[in-house]
């Protein structure tokens, strides 16, 4: 089978998965008691007649498949779907307004976790089985094991509370997001702590994977050849072993980045009060705002599923065995 066919097949699969997710979400919503959008739109103390009229006006009296199609039409094709909670608020632009927040958070964190994990991986591999290696690996393991929301709370406690009035954290601005174009310095300052909080677990994971890959690569023939040519050990490690080991990291990175941009950084956004896509998703879910839920879920699943698809396609480029499934 050709690569082109694999890609087409994968894309069809992707669309099908997104369809499945949206249908499931839709059905779960309508199975939830107390979620009746008509009563919620009508407001407290509304008479039953008013609720019935609203149900009709919003098309909530139609059969579910019809409602589903109408909603998806307004979401994907006409893009004028509006929220049930903040009536009149168009959901698609709202997501696009939240996206820069999430992108700022995830990009910054990604830079940090790539730089630090390379540092950790290379140092640990270079000092394999010595104290520094063991220390770094233990720290990585701890980093992986800390719940991100709890870490965020502790960071807030220290930086906003206990030590806020000392030189160490007096620069920390209040929680929340400042757009980059409004004040670049403040943007940076308000994101530094969220970046590190989000990045910590990834530094641990990537550092460990990288170390393992480098250690393995150092046994390969081409490294022996490089050494035989008399290249210095540091150069062998960085120029040859690291470069080769980065491939595994990048597939990993694709998946994680896709999921985070799609709203996976929800906990970090909630704890630090960053109004990104994850926060929006969380709010829509707790408000049971169906149009917003459908929009954020479609958005998130797009990123997750396409990152998946991309990694799979890359795999099939590297390893033709997978294509024969």
């Amino acid at each position: 089978m050709s690569l082109g066919f694999t890609i087409v097949k994968r894309l069809a699969h992707m669309v099908f998965v997104m369809f499945g997710i949206s249908v499931l979400v839709f059905l779960i919503f309508f199975a939830t008691p107390g979620a009746d959008p008509a009563a919620r739109i009508a407001g407290r103390n509304a008479s039953p007649q008013t609720v019935a009229l609203i149900r009709k006006e919003f098309g909530l009296d139609k059969p579910l498949p019809v409602q589903y199609l109408r909603m998806m039409d307004r979401l994907v094709i006409r893009r004028d779907l509006t929220s049930y909670v903040n009536l009149g608020e168009k959901v698609v632009p709202t997501i696009f307004r939240a996206a820069p927040v999430t992108l700022s958070l995830v990009f910054g964190a990604a830079v940090i976790w790539i730089v630090f994990s390379i540092l950790v991986g290379v140092l640990a591999a270079a000092f394999k089985d010595r104290t520094l290696d063991r220390l770094l690996m233990i720290l990585s393991l701890i980093g992986i094991s800390i719940p991100v929301f709890w870490l965020g709370e502790v960071v807030n406690l220290v930086s906003q509370g206990l030590l806020h009035n000392t030189w160490l954290f007096s620069w920390v601005p209040p929680l929340g997001y400042v757009p980059l174009h409004r004040d670049p310095a403040l943007w940076f300052k308000s994101l530094v702590l969220p970046w590190f909080t989000l990045a910590l677990a990834f530094i641990g994971i990537y550092g460990r994977v990288l170390r393992a890959n480098i250690v393995e690569a150092m046994q390969e023939d081409y490294i022996r050849l490089a050494r035989a040519k008399g290249l210095p050990e540091a150069q062998v490690l960085i120029r040859h072993a690291l470069r080769c080991s980065m491939i595994a990291i990048f597939t990993l990175f694709g998946l994680d980045f896709g999921a985070l941009v799609g709203g996976g950084a929800l906990l970090t956004e909630v704890v630090f009060g960053l109004p990104g896509v994850g926060y929006l998703t969380y709010q829509a879910l707790t408000n049971l705002d169906l149009p917003m839920i459908m929009a954020t879920v479609t958005y998130a699943s797009f990123f997750v599923v396409s990152a998946n698809a991309m990694v799979d396609i890359l795999y099939s480029v590297f390893d033709p065995r997978v294509r024969n499934d």
């Binding site: 009508a42 407001g43 103390n45 008479s47 007649q49 008013t50 009229l53 006006e57």
Partner: peptide
């Protein structure tokens, strides 16, 4: 516009009952 309280408050206005039923 289906104000939430038309059926509980404002239907006291003459003709309001009809308006609640058929806006």
């Amino acid at each position: 516009v289906l104000n939430p309280n038309v059926g509980t408050w404002y239907d006291v206005i003459a003709g309001g009952r009809h308006c609640v039923k058929s806006p």
